[in-house]
Design a protein around this nucleic acid. Structure first.
Lengths: 164, 164
DNA sequence: TATTGTTATACTCTATAACTATA
DNA sequence: TATAGTTATAGAGTATAACAATA
């Protein structure tokens, strides 16, 4: 609410130079723009293996928690039960993961990586490391730690405000 | 790659307690989770006005740059020409914005807010302020500034790496 | 020839409701 | 009754290709 509103004179060169107003100071706006950049870089890096962020995260969780149930994996990643089905179907069709009968609950599926899934994940870990390094180089190790800490606080604030 | 892989024993209470492995240390993962939280809070706050983040950002840009062309608005927000069309259609149908013939380029549309669009934006500014405050309260003013600074650096790093 | 807006289209992620088989 | 997985469906965001009008 500072500058007078005046119709822009036509002095654009090639890139538009518009007034963004309060947007660059809003956490949500900056968060969104940054997240898109990081995911784009992830896809540029891991797209060669045809792996999107969601697939990578599921691979990781199953690897660290073999035998976990579908619902648990979805819950911990914030993916709804109904939405993880297609992702796991894709992973099974690609031979990366398996649904096996759960030992003590016949409603549940226990999830495991195949050898191919395990091999892919090890390859991805290298690619993701390169991807991550690009951004750590930009903000420094300390910056990365600060960033993750701040984002954790953002998440906690939202979780608290959930019951409003 | 530290803990031994052992099938989980079934000791879950109500919430699954799975090993997330490297995910909580990856910028992209934490960024994504935080961004979803913030957008969810935005929608909880501004949904009463039936306004999503994209609509709010376009309203803001047109307000600060009356007469701007469609392509400029899209470019500055990272929305593709083909994708901003439906958003502007919606905004025109809702009586929030207008496409007028551009003074000097008959291919272009010059964008303006209607009085209703202006009034809505002023109302939204209050709601967004409340929304923003929730998160600034959680991280502090300094935290907010650090966060925005770090996220700006993340974005720059991605932009540089774009031509790879 | 290149650019602006448009249409058509497809893919991904997210959300809800209803169904089934088990518990 | 409640839960785990599934199906169907819908809404959003994002991406590409092709077209008409205009530059």
């Amino acid at each position: 609410m500072s500058q007078p509103h005046r119709d822009r004179v036509e002095t654009e060169s090639d890139t538009a130079q518009l007034d963004l107003g309060p947007l660059p100071g809003l956490i949500g706006y900056v968060l969104r723009r940054a997240q898109l950049c990081v995911f784009k870089d992830f896809n540029d890096t891991c797209g060669e293996a045809d792996v999107r962020p969601a697939i990578f995260s599921i691979l990781t969780i199953i690897d660290r928690n073999p035998g976990a149930r579908q619902g648990e994996v979805g819950a911990v990643l914030g993916i709804k039960r109904s939405n993880i089905v297609a992702l796991l179907n894709e992973m099974e069709e690609r031979g990366l993961a398996e649904r096996r009968p759960h030992a003590s609950d016949r409603r549940s599926h226990a999830l495991f990586l195949t050898d191919a899934g395990d091999a892919l994940l090890r390859r991805l870990d290298g690619l993701v490391e390169k991807h991550e390094k690009r951004f750590v180089d930009a903000v420094g190790e300390d910056g990365r730690d600060q960033l993750i800490d701040l984002l954790g606080n953002i998440q906690n604030a939202a979780d608290l405000g959930d019951d409003r």
